[in-house]
Simulated assay, not measured.
Amino acid sequence: MKRFTRAAVSLAAPLAAAQFVVGATAPAAAAAPQPVRVPSGVTAGYVVFDRQAGKVIANRQVHHRFRSASVVKVLIAIDYLERRKGTIPAADAALLATMLRGSDDDAATALWRRGGQGKIVQRMARKIGLADTAPPPAAKPGFWGYTAISALDIARVYRYLLDTAEPRVRDAVMGHLRQAQQCATDGFDQHFGIPRGVPRPWAVKQGWSGYGSVPPVKCVRSTSSSTGMAPRGAAGPTTTGASATDLTPVTTGTAGLATGLTTGRAAGLRRGNAVDFSRPVLHTTGVIGDRFIMVVLTTQPAGASYGSSATRLTALARDLYRSVR
């Protein structure tokens, strides 16, 4: 059994322009935290930030780098909206909606190409002060799902959205995340982790990769407490490689790191923190009510099924939420 820590992890970004410091006074010491179990074979990094207290209240391996899968779509959306001044064309508004609500990969690829691919990540990392985040490997510039992220960096992204971004950007992105569909456009059930384990209201962006391009079970919308997944065909995926739809190759643009991010990347590599591109990943991230930012990133066991991974991640998110309440 592994317990989370209440270490003094700061969400304040290294760039002064990010303005993340919160002056709230911390509440009196709480009761001893409840145990949070990380399932065997799972690599997990997580952060819970209490906006009311103005501090991180639970954390584990906050700088561990994971491949982003669809979580990077939040950065794609913020970058597009901040670069686009004036009215958003109807076609682009539709792309943003389906990318954030239904985690649509084709929409993400279209906006990724238009924004310069890895340059999107570079711009966002510089602006928000993301120390562990980096574009996909230079050999795979179009594979947006191979963007490197950490739990602390994604928590900073949500803080930026809620506390610093222009209201039009905040309202657009958070509005879509509050309406995240249960059934993603690729047929996968994306109500795992926070949506399945934490009471509403919440706004979420999920991520998954390594389970094939076709869901092993059919996603069925459900308002009950059941899994919302009905059997269809095989019980699990037969491949453990990256999802084809998550990783649509694009050949234009450039990849690599901006000069201002070199130090952060070197620090991550010195920690032996290379990104795992082989095992499946499953992530749940978002805002619970108006108070908690929760980010749980996981690398699952090799060959794990989507259903078993979702069950493990949901249990972890539920335990983590209960431990901080």
Rank of each mutant, 00 (worst) to 15 (best):
K2G: 02
A12E: 15
L15M: 05
L15T: 05
A16K: 09
A16L: 07
A29E: 08
A29T: 02
A31M: 06
P33Q: 08
V38I: 07
G45R: 06
Y46A: 00
A53G: 02
V56A: 06
I57H: 02
I57G: 00
R60K: 10
H64R: 13
R67C: 01
V72Q: 11
V72L: 12
I76P: 06
D79V: 02
Y80K: 08
L81E: 13
R84L: 06
D92S: 01
D92L: 03
A94N: 03
A97T: 11
A97C: 01
T98S: 08
M99W: 04
G102I: 00
D104W: 00
D106Q: 02
D106E: 09
G115A: 09
G116K: 04
I120S: 02
V121F: 12
V121K: 05
A125Y: 07
A125N: 05
D132T: 02
P135Y: 07
P141M: 06
G142L: 03
F143G: 00
Y146K: 01
A148M: 03
S150R: 03
R156N: 03
Y160W: 11
T164N: 04
A165I: 00
P167Q: 07
P167N: 03
P167G: 06
R168S: 10
D171Q: 11
A172N: 13
M174Q: 09
H176V: 00
H176R: 10
H176E: 10
A180W: 12
A180I: 07
Q181A: 07
C183K: 05
D186G: 04
F188R: 02
F192K: 03
P195Y: 14
K205G: 05
Q206I: 04
Q206P: 01
G207P: 02
G207I: 01
G210W: 14
S213V: 08
V214G: 02
V217E: 15
S222D: 15
T223R: 11
T227G: 14
T227V: 07
A234I: 12
P237A: 09
P237N: 15
T240R: 14
T251K: 08
G253V: 05
T254L: 08
L257T: 03
G260Y: 12
L261A: 08
A266W: 14
G268P: 05
R270E: 14
D276N: 13
R279C: 05
D290F: 00
R291I: 06
I293F: 02
M294I: 03
V295G: 02
L297V: 07
Q300V: 05
Q300I: 08
A302T: 09
S305G: 12
S308H: 14
S308N: 13
S308T: 10
R312A: 15
R312Q: 15
T314F: 13
R318E: 14
R325K: 14
